[in-house]
Write a protein that binds this DNA or RNA. Structure first.
Length: 820
RNA sequence: GCGCGGGUGGUGUAAUGGUAGCCACGCCAGCUUGAGGGGCUGGUGGCCGUAAGGCCGUGGAGGUUCAAGUCCUCUCCCGCGCACCA
């Protein structure tokens, strides 16, 4: 290898550190740019090779912005609470605090070795009491606003982690962390009412610049449905015995237009349970069904392709649209936790209801016909495809919109247009439902922020006064979670027993801790003023820095973390604590770095790439540039050591080129190439096309390798190279006798005149087939182009004996000669 | 099932509707006294051909256009997310 990367990388990292060039200033003349990466969880495994993908990309943007004269904030910190550390503590009998310190030391060293331009003076750590003091303070804000509440409810309990999980943390009935089995348990849990913000979290998406797929995932998760709540009255049975059911059943539907086809009702086992609890005299069979289906695990109940089960309750209800009596069933395909927990079943127009009706022999009444054929003919496509698409419609269960039939006065009308008329006519109410649930906020574990509340018999839950924050996590003997579901803190009677801040009487501390989403929901605010011990951040600084101009992280966080932190910020905004409602103006996501074989890297498979070894053997600049070059930023891409070596060869070539460089006064031959290449790099950074930016550099050097460029040209090249390979760029800068650092230079301006090529190679086609190329000005007129083309022997041959029908000439693009 | 992305050489990939395959990896050949994935030059989509050249080629089938990887319709496959959410 041509240059000693270990030596030069150390040298420039030291200079950056001592000069403080990457420190952000809180204010001043310059325009601000807040650039954020998701702060890492400092695991014991050390930095993953995937981390630098995000960090380097935003480092490139940050560095470019500094060159452009922005005041850039590019901070870093540690999201250090969490289960792996706690489990490791249990296994080794060591303190999580000590483990965290070691891990963050490792991560810090590793990140510094990459030459990332973080402002290390603002480093934060969520497990630091001076940090979680404010996490606790914010929790109390939720509490004081009535958004944090404790409730007993069935929660997802992971049997192996011994921890309650949020709905979001359960994947197909398994624990997201350990993959273990979960079950439903009734537990007292702290909840935060994120559902109150559902609509605003949805609306806010229209005001921000996120990748479309991120927005759609968020929308999907919030899951807004517009429809109606309809009451189906229940006539009293002559024999009596209906107590508990009440005199009507409320259902939620998004298709009130299909109500004439509602041939039965289905209520969830949860609703059935509620009726039983208040005295419904149901049959033995019904009781058994309710008990058994409630006992079954979620996983089981919602498994795909599962045969539907259910039981006829004997209760009947009246369809308010046509007055018909219809049976009421209980079935577990209706979920207790969504809508009203009851539905009107329209088997003719809903697949699930159809399946159920088929199995139990319930009647099916069609109330919507597909639109007549003419209506769906697409003029651009022609009739044949309309015929094809019509074929789908011919099935037993039709889901789409169409024309009403069997619907009394509404017959013949379009279903879409009758929706709300029907709702009005039957006296139902418009209603909006969301899939989003409230946030389960307590964990029965040690390694998290203590929830700063105290239970007093007289005053119930009381907030710990602000001046007593933080409630510091006490040292405990044992970190093991308990089977009773209590946090290990519960055993610390000295800590648990306290006095009520309101009456001074005896009180007990809450022993649950917060989920580790808590600290990461607001860390971006702390970076703004990380040493402030009076506020989480000063008003003025928040106003200056927020919102975040660019945020990047993994796709795995685009639902939970992004939603929680947006919510958290909106809440703080409502309380007047932060200046903007949406924290992230622009959000990007990067793809995973896969192992060489295209699978996920994992320790057990032994295909993990260690960043330390790469930096040691090939240098940080090689790693940085390769990880940007390997593929499109958003896509998952397999790692390739050979690919990395290829980039290293390129850097060697750069170093050699600069070493051999002799200053020349002018070089107009390559001026255009230099200008256009660097312009492309500059543009590609803006559009996150780092892979083509790197390839533009490679092309550039391939073209200039034979010649010496001028000093100005070379300086430009090195400045633009700086964000990608900052150590080498600086080394070269120094080598050609320039003073200062590349970081201090302005981003180059690009000369319009040089960006335009005066002669290009243009394709000539005959009947759309490329035949030859001609050298021509991109602005040449048609006559010139024709003359050049017709002068070509090959073209002449292709035209021989043919009649020219048409000539299409697009200057700078193509000349197409159409012949017969 | 619904939503969002994708299918291009041996590989990673690139292409404002305008010469498909930039840039790399790998491979082949040659040069260099420089051994441990050293440097340089040239070649490298497939088929036919000594060559000149020709034909074919971006998952598949149609279509629009002077011109389609790109636009439209249908279809197959893959990845990610959500999922009995009424």
């Amino acid at each position: 290898m041509a240059y000693n990367h270990q030596q030069i990388e150390k040298k420039w990292q030291d200079r950056w550190e001592t000069s403080g060039v990457f420190h952000a200033k809180d204010g001043g003349e310059k325009q601000k740019f807040y650039c954020l990466i998701e702060f890492p969880y400092p695991s014991g495994a050390g930095l993953h090779i995937g981390h630098p993908r995000s960090y380097t990309a935003l480092d490139v943007v940050s560095r470019k912005r500094r060159h452009q004269g922005y005041n850039v904030l590019y901070p870093i910190g540690w999201d250090a609470f969490g289960l792996p550390t706690e489990n490791y503590a249990i296994k080794t009998g060591r303190k999580p605090q000590d483990i965290t310190r070691e891990n963050t030391d490792t991560f810090r060293r590793q990140l510094k070795s990459l030459g990332l331009s973080f402002d290390w003076s603002r480093e934060v750590n969520t497990t630091d009491p001076s940090y979680y003091k404010w996490t606790q303070w914010m929790f109390l804000e939720f509490f004081k606003a009535g958004l944090a509440y404790k409730t007993s409810q069935p929660i997802n309990w992971c049997l192996s982690c011994k921890i309650g999980l949020a709905n979001e943390e359960v994947v197909n009935g398994k624990c997201e962390r350990c993959g273990g089995v979960t079950e439903k348990r009734d537990k007292e849990q702290w909840m935060i009412a994120i559902t109150k913000y559902a609509e605003r979290l949805l609306e806010g998406l229209d005001t921000v610049d996120y990748l479309e797929k991120i927005k759609s995932q968020q929308r999907n998760w919030i899951g807004k449905s517009e429809g109606a709540e309809i009451d189906f009255s229940v006539p009293p049975l002559p024999e009596g015995g209906l107590g508990g059911v009440g005199d009507s059943i409320q259902v939620f539907t998004t298709r009130p237009d299909t109500i004439f086809g509602a041939t039965f009702l289905v209520v969830s086992p949860e609703v059935g349970k509620k009726w039983l609890d208040v005295g419904w005299q149901a049959s033995e069979e019904v009781r058994r069904y309710v008990v058994e289906s409630l006992a079954r695990e979620e996983m089981d109940r919602t498994a795909e392709g599962k045969e539907k089960t259910g039981v006829d309750t004997g209760v009947v209800a009246i369809n308010p649209a046509n007055g018909k009596q219809i049976p009421v069933w209980i079935a577990d395909y209706v979920l207790g936790g969504y809508g009203t927990g009851a539905i009107m079943a329209v088997p003719a127009h809903d697949e699930r209801d159809f399946e159920f009706a088929q199995k139990f022999g319930l009647s099916v009444v069609k109330v919507i016909e597909p639109e007549p054929l003419q209506e769906i003919i697409n003029p651009d496509v022609g009739i044949s495809h309309a015929m094809q698409s019509n074929v789908k419609i011919v099935s037993d269960c039709f889901i789409g919109d169409g024309v009403m039939v069997n619907s009394g006065d509404f017959n013949g009308m379009k279903s879409k247009e009758t929706m709300w008329a029907i709702v009005d006519k039957i006296g139902a109410r418009r209603s909006v439902k969301y899939k989003l649930r409230d946030w389960v906020f307590s964990r029965q574990r040690y390694w998290g922020e203590p929830i700063p509340l105290v239970w007093c018999e007289n005053h119930q839950w009381v907030a710990v006064p602000n001046e007593q924050l933080p409630v510091v996590l006490p040292d405990v003997e044992k970190y093991e979670p308990t089977d009773t579901g209590e946090s290990p803190l519960a055993a610390m009677s000295d800590w648990v027993n306290t006095t009520c801040p309101q009456c001074g009487g005896p009180a007990r501390r809450e022993t649950d801790t917060m989920p580790n989403w808590a600290g990461s929901s607001w860390y971006f605010l702390r970076y703004i003023d990380s040493h402030n011990d009076k506020e989480f951040a000063s008003r003025d600084k928040l106003k200056y820095w927020m919102p975040i101009d660019l945020y990047n992280g993994g796709m795995e966080h685009t639902v939970l973390h992004l939603l929680y932190s947006r919510f958290w910020n909106k809440f703080l905004f409502d309380r007047g604590h932060v200046p903007v409602s949406e924290p992230y103006a622009r959000r990007h996501s990067h793809g995973l770095v896969l192992a060489e074989d295209g699978t996920k890297m994992s320790k057990s498979k032994g295909n993990v790439v260690n960043p330390d070894e790469i930096v040691r053997d090939y240098g940080a600049d090689s790693l940085r540039m390769y990880i940007l070059f390997m593929g499109p930023f958003e896509e998952p891409v397999p790692w390739s050591l050979n690919g990395l070596i290829g980039v290293r060869r390129f850097l060697d070539k750069v170093e050699r080129y600069v070493g051999d460089w002799r200053e020349v006064q002018t070089n107009s031959e390559v001026a255009g190439v230099v200008e256009r290449s660097l312009k492309k790099v500059s543009d590609d950074i803006e559009s996150f096309k780092f892979n083509t930016a790197v390839s533009a550099f490679m092309s550039l050097f391939n073209e200039i390798v034979e010649s010496h460029v001028t000093r100005e040209q070379l300086k430009k090249i090195l400045v633009v190279l700086g964000p990608f390979a900052p150590h080498l760029a600086n080394e070269c800068w120094e080598k050609i006798g320039e003073t200062g650092m590349v970081e201090e230079q302005a981003w180059p301006e690009f000369d319009e005149a040089l960006l335009v090529q005066d002669e290009i190679e243009m394709g000539v086609q005959v009947n759309g087939k490329a035949r030859v190329t001609i050298q021509i000005s991109p602005t040449a007129d048609e006559a010139t182009a024709k003359q050049l083309a017709f002068a070509d022997e090959k073209i002449q041959k292709h035209l021989e004996g043919k009649e020219i029908v048409k000539i299409v000439y697009v200057p700078g693009r193509i000349l197409n000669i159409v012949v017969k």
